[in-house]
Design a protein around this nucleic acid. Structure first.
Lengths: 103, 103
DNA sequence: TAGATAGGATACCGATTGGTATCACGTCAA
DNA sequence: TTGACGTGATACCAATCGGTATCCTATCTA
């Protein structure tokens, strides 16, 4: 499930959409108003974001409310954590070595 | 500088290369050995990773040592932090509201 | 010095991507 | 009921992407 997420974040427009949704849920038309783009283009981006699990949609009448999904960010966070742990280990190994050098 | 970074992370092969480099610095030939891919293809991926600031290269004789660059991950981490802060605020606002409801 | 080794550069190919234009469908309101 | 409104869906286009093949340069070594 991590590939669709990273793929979704690769486009600057999609990252902008996510930041906009952070300020509040929005319909497609509302998002389109803030971009120099067709509604169809925005819709495509929203589909990619949805595939990546980063947003969810709630159908209300003829409208579709797009909402940020905090859980969708987990894959990225987890992936970063892998490297964080790796670097932490490297750092402790380094300080350990230094301590041994100066007993 | 954040767009090249996200772009670099969008490809699964490139993320694999990063994980491989976490176990130790490697030359292009060494990386190519572990993939079913041409050296030229790997080289392209390394260029994208370098553009994203995720790796650095040290020329040693006729070899090029590719090394992970921890600093390159900062843009992604910072970007995630934005949403973390946002959700934290939302959560505290919610708990505050609940506390007011039950004095 | 001659070959082998490690890598750079470029042209090319099929597939994917971001975008538009267009038409079709359900839903709301007068 | 009849439009207007909010979306979905599809066909199409230029540009980018991941990958290969090929040729070239620099460096090490026998």
């Amino acid at each position: 499930m991590t590939q669709p997420t990273f793929r979704a974040l690769a486009d600057p427009t999609r990252r902008d959409i996510l930041q906009m949704l952070a300020t509040g849920d929005m319909t497609i038309a509302q998002i389109t108003d803030r971009f120099d783009m067709t509604r169809a283009a925005v819709k495509k981006h929203l589909t990619v974001l949805s595939d990546g699990g980063l947003i969810t949609t709630e159908v209300r009448g003829r409208e579709r409310i797009n909402r940020l999904d905090p859980a969708g960010f987990a894959p990225v966070r987890d992936w970063l954590t892998f490297f964080d742990r790796f670097w932490d280990d490297r750092l402790t190994a380094l300080t350990d070595a230094i301590e041994k050098d100066q007993p």
